[in-house]
């Protein structure tokens, strides 16, 4: 039984009183641990343990019979031109592609949400890129953007000089395009789910008050979609690292410097046997993503409260 004072406090305070917080007593632990253990062991064995080993390499000077060098690998990495280029390009790519992807997927989701019928069919259309294997699309992208490819052939018809899409600064544009093509459907589905959870009476109240579409979007849709946006943002950033597969298959291990990303750097470190540098880069990346995700989740909790 809850006391009335606790209920009142729960309604007024952001932090619920202890009585309302989920707790796990000694008995609860004993019951819960057997269920948790398989997952915990698997996670420790297949994620924490290998990652721990790789973190160990980050403090050695060489993979075979290396000696402890403290933070020398970290200092070396942060002055490495290739790493810094990869980091800069990765941040630039995320900075360009993720907002474009979020905006487009929200726009498409809102348009689909307004459709009177065939919503599922059109949603499915946007999901197709998600299920097409990367390898099977590579020849398409390559034949489209190659120097003697379809796009240049089309432009040539208008008297425009051939453009080296894959081996010039424009390669970043190709990379963003491939990312958006691949991930639009994923975020769109998240937004569709988010849109369906916005209460109808909010829109009705806005309509009664004479709100314009932009005002409705700005003050009702967007705030209600904030948790979805945070989730979509995290997933987009994680997915932005996955576009490497396509780019690697199209342009190889050493593409034009404008699209050389952290994944290229790490992949090449593996190929060149520089395991300490590879694991140092991985450690920094994991730490960076962990901190960024935590900040985003706190932000989401703060604005949702």
């Amino acid at each position: 039984m809850y006391r009335l004072a606790d209920v009142k406090q729960a309604l007024t305070n952001k932090t619920p009183p202890a009585a309302f917080r989920p707790t796990m007593g000694r008995k609860g632990w004993a019951t819960g641990m057997p269920f948790l253990l398989p997952g915990l062991i698997g996670f420790a064995l297949f994620f924490i343990w290998p990652f721990g080993i790789s973190v160990g390499y980050a403090f050695l000077d060489r993979p075979v019979g290396g000696s402890f060098v403290g933070f020398a690998n970290f200092a070396d990495l942060l002055t490495n031109r290739a790493y810094l280029l990869g980091l800069t390009n990765t941040l630039r790519f995320i900075g360009i592609s993720v907002p474009i992807n979020l905006a487009l997927s929200l726009g498409v989701a809102m348009l689909i949400n307004k459709l009177p019928r065939h919503k599922e069919l059109i949603s499915l259309f946007f999901l197709i890129p998600l299920v097409i294997p990367s390898g099977s699309m590579v020849s398409f992208w390559h034949s489209l953007f190659a120097l003697d490819g379809a796009l240049n052939g089309f432009l040539h018809g208008f008297g425009i000089e051939r453009i080296n899409w894959l081996n010039s600064d424009l390669a970043m544009f190709v990379m963003v395009l491939i990312f958006v093509w691949k991930n639009l459907g994923y975020n769109m589905i998240l937004y569709l789910a988010g849109l369906s959870s916005v209460p109808r009476d909010c829109y009705e109240a806005a309509w009664v008050d004479g709100a314009k579409p932009w005002q409705t979007f700005r003050h009702i849709t967007l705030p209600h979609l904030m948790p979805t946006t945070v989730l979509a943002l995290i997933m987009s950033i994680i997915n932005s690292f996955k576009v490497f597969r396509e780019i690697f298959l199209i342009t190889g291990a050493y593409p034009h410097p404008s699209i050389y990303t952290l994944q290229h750097f790490m992949n090449n470190m593996f190929a060149s046997l520089n395991y300490p540098r590879l694991t140092t880069a991985t450690t920094i990346l994991v730490a960076g993503i962990a901190i960024f995700t935590q900040v985003l989740l706190r932000f989401e909790r703060k604005i949702s409260a």
Binding site: R81, A82, Y254, N268, M269
Partner: peptide
């Protein structure tokens, strides 16, 4: 220059 230096910088 940019591509080969990139390889050598790794």
């Amino acid at each position: 220059q940019s591509r080969v230096q990139l390889i050598l910088s790794e």
